[in-house]
């Protein structure tokens, strides 16, 4: 970008912004592996505390909120790739769901949903819908409708199918029974961490969402 316009002031600002954005690009790339590691650590801590939840997408949601749909989506996708190659191959087909969760969080972050209460609830509902609607067809193909989680399969799926409900509906409710609490904690923790970050860092990562000329989004908190 050349700053040779007669409007010196504007040219300067644009040039600075571009340089800044360029560096942020690298920063956003560097953020992705960190989000992946947060996904892993969230799951590991949940296991050590013996919590009955996965909590393996906190980094994905946080990455989406901080730096947009691409950072969130890629973090989710690669988290699943790595875990399917090392500890849990069954996670591989669900990569696509993690990608969608990261993109959903990124879109929520773009509109600043995490800053207001109705927005936070909307973010939670959106992520639950993306996760549950996306996972159900995979569950049907992999496990014949079960979710692979002992609680949902024995308490939700089996009785409903026994009672004559259609398998897809039982499969959806089975998946939902896991996603409702799991994604609630995920979104709550991600938003809490977001607001626990030093302002400086939030500002660093969030420049992506401000195309030149657009007014600054609502200030945080």
């Amino acid at each position: 970008m050349t700053a040779s316009s007669t409007k010196d002031q504007e040219g300067m600002t644009l040039g600075v912004l571009n340089a800044f954005r360029f560096r942020l690009n690298t920063l956003a790339i560097v953020l992705i592996p960190v989000c992946i590691a947060i996904d892993w650590a969230g799951h590991a801590l949940a296991s050590t505390l013996k919590l009955p939840l996965f909590l393996d997408s906190i980094g994905t949601v946080l990455g989406g909120l901080l730096a947009g749909p691409w950072v969130g989506g890629l973090a989710g996708l690669i988290t699943n790739f790595i875990s399917s190659g090392t500890v849990d191959p069954i996670a591989a087909p669900y990569s696509i769901i993690s990608l969608a969760i990261g993109i959903a969080a990124g879109i929520g972050g773009y509109y600043g949903w995490h800053k207001t209460w109705p927005g936070r609830i909307a973010l939670y509902i959106l992520i639950v819908l993306v996760a549950s609607i996306g996972s159900t067809p995979l569950n049907v193909n992999l496990y014949g409708g079960q979710s692979g989680v002992a609680f949902g399969d024995t308490v939700v799926y089996a009785p409903l199918v026994k009672a004559g409900w259609p398998t897809w509906l039982a499969a959806y409710l089975d998946e939902l029974s896991g996603d409702l609490p799991d994604k609630l904690i995920t979104v709550v923790v991600a938003v809490l961490i977001y607001f626990g970050l030093p302002n400086r860092y939030r500002a660093l990562f969030s420049v992506w969402r401000r195309p030149s000329g657009e007014p600054e989004p609502a200030p945080a908190s």
Partner: peptide, 23 residues
């Protein structure tokens, strides 16, 4: 469950703070 956040927050903050230097 209450112990989750006090463990998670410091972990995330310290790993995020390192990103700028790495970049």
């Amino acid at each position: 469950a209450r112990a989750y956040l006090p463990l998670m927050l410091p972990l995330v903050l310290s790993s995020l703070v390192a990103t700028q230097e790495r970049a």
